[in-house]
């Protein structure tokens, strides 16, 4: 247990909360998706810090899953949702 790491994690939490504005406001769909990516990266950092702060090494595994799956969502978004939405203009989907 270390209070210092907990404070660091606490500092990172507003970074996530502020990212919300971009989801609400983002003009294009990609802007919104990028915020989800930011949540993923910040979430990994918070989990790493909490794993020392709470003294629980299992949290490293959760961080690993975060790192893998946040990217999965972005890639699905680009290949499925965003590309498919106006295929008429550009005939070459990837």
């Amino acid at each position: 247990m270390s209070w210092m790491h907990t404070i660091f994690a606490l500092i990172l939490l507003p970074a996530i909360a502020t990212g919300m504005f971009r989801i609400l406001r983002g003009p294009t769909a990609a802007d919104r998706m990028m915020t989800a990516q930011l949540f993923g990266t910040c979430g990994v950092a918070i989990l790493l810090l909490l794993s020392t702060g709470m003294g629980n090494p299992v949290l490293l595994d959760i961080a690993l899953v975060f790192a893998l799956l946040a990217a999965l969502a972005t890639i699905t978004f680009v290949r499925r949702t965003w590309h498919g939405s106006n295929k008429r203009n550009h005939g070459n989907p990837l």
Binding site: A36, L59, I62, V65, L69, L72, T76, F77, R80, T81
Partner: peptide, 23 residues
């Protein structure tokens, strides 16, 4: 932490892409 692992994998990792494909 075990529930958190499942939540990260299912909630964010699988359901998200599933919804995006459905969209």
């Amino acid at each position: 932490p075990d529930v958190a692992l499942a939540e990260a994998a299912l909630g964010a990792g699988l359901t998200g892409p599933l919804f995006l494909s459905a969209l």
